[in-house]
Simulated assay, not measured.
Amino acid sequence: MNRKTASLWVSGVLLLGATTAHADLPDEATLYKNPQCGCCDGYARHLEELGIDVTIVDNVELGDIKLQAGVPYGLGSCHTIEIGEYWIEGHVPMEAVTKLFEDQPDVGGIGLAGMPIGTPGMPGPQAEPYNVYAFSDQENEPFMTLEP
């Protein structure tokens, strides 16, 4: 196999891997947010670019949704997403969301507190590690750390 053929083969394998990495994600999601929050719309657009049909709900009490989802107090963000059997709290990068659906742990969901720069919907470069947590029933534990 010559160098050009090998390069094309590796590129094809990587492309197929990227395509199947998101294959485990559900086709639909509901994003609950404040009506004035534009970065939440950016996160919804990011999900849509991955082929997920997103319904945006901006006329509910977010505190009630977070309580229903089991998000621990103090670890919330500007939006909460219901996707498949899980909840996603905030601007969680797709690497963590994909891992959640690949591993399917016995948790209510995963989250990333605040609105970190460099995450989907929050423009700019990642400046510090993202500490993604898993949660259930208002309790949390580390899920994964994404380094810059």
Score class of each variant (00 low, 15 high):
residue 1 M to K: 09
residue 3 R to G: 12
residue 3 R to P: 06
residue 6 A to H: 09
residue 6 A to R: 15
residue 7 S to T: 14
residue 8 L to W: 10
residue 9 W to E: 15
residue 10 V to Y: 08
residue 10 V to K: 10
residue 11 S to F: 15
residue 12 G to T: 08
residue 13 V to S: 06
residue 13 V to H: 12
residue 16 L to D: 08
residue 17 G to T: 05
residue 21 A to M: 05
residue 22 H to V: 07
residue 22 H to I: 06
residue 28 E to T: 04
residue 29 A to E: 01
residue 30 T to K: 03
residue 31 L to E: 08
residue 31 L to R: 07
residue 31 L to K: 09
residue 32 Y to Q: 09
residue 33 K to R: 13
residue 33 K to I: 07
residue 34 N to R: 12
residue 34 N to P: 10
residue 35 P to D: 14
residue 35 P to T: 13
residue 36 Q to R: 15
residue 36 Q to S: 15
residue 36 Q to I: 13
residue 37 C to I: 14
residue 37 C to F: 09
residue 39 C to S: 02
residue 40 C to W: 11
residue 40 C to Q: 11
residue 41 D to F: 11
residue 42 G to C: 07
residue 42 G to D: 10
residue 43 Y to K: 02
residue 43 Y to H: 07
residue 48 E to I: 00
residue 49 E to W: 00
residue 49 E to K: 09
residue 51 G to C: 06
residue 53 D to R: 00
residue 55 T to H: 06
residue 58 D to P: 12
residue 58 D to L: 14
residue 59 N to K: 09
residue 63 G to W: 04
residue 63 G to T: 15
residue 64 D to V: 14
residue 65 I to C: 11
residue 67 L to V: 10
residue 67 L to Y: 11
residue 70 G to D: 10
residue 78 C to Y: 10
residue 78 C to Q: 10
residue 79 H to E: 09
residue 80 T to H: 13
residue 81 I to E: 04
residue 82 E to S: 12
residue 82 E to H: 11
residue 83 I to K: 00
residue 84 G to Q: 01
residue 85 E to L: 00
residue 85 E to D: 14
residue 86 Y to H: 02
residue 87 W to H: 06
residue 89 E to Q: 14
residue 89 E to P: 14
residue 90 G to V: 04
residue 92 V to K: 00
residue 92 V to Y: 00
residue 93 P to Y: 09
residue 94 M to A: 00
residue 97 V to I: 10
residue 98 T to S: 08
residue 100 L to G: 04
residue 100 L to Q: 01
residue 101 F to E: 00
residue 105 P to A: 02
residue 105 P to R: 00
residue 108 G to M: 01
residue 109 G to Q: 06
residue 110 I to L: 02
residue 110 I to Q: 01
residue 112 L to K: 04
residue 114 G to E: 14
residue 115 M to Q: 09
residue 116 P to V: 03
residue 117 I to M: 12
residue 121 G to P: 08
residue 123 P to V: 08
residue 124 G to I: 07
residue 124 G to D: 11
residue 125 P to H: 07
residue 125 P to S: 15
residue 127 A to F: 07
residue 129 P to I: 05
residue 130 Y to W: 06
residue 133 Y to N: 03
residue 134 A to M: 06
residue 135 F to P: 10
residue 135 F to E: 04
residue 136 S to G: 09
residue 138 Q to H: 13
residue 138 Q to G: 07
residue 138 Q to A: 13
residue 141 E to W: 12
residue 142 P to S: 01
residue 142 P to W: 08
residue 142 P to H: 06
residue 144 M to A: 02
residue 144 M to Q: 10
residue 145 T to S: 15
residue 146 L to H: 03
residue 148 P to D: 05
residue 148 P to N: 06
residue 148 P to K: 03
residue 148 P to E: 06
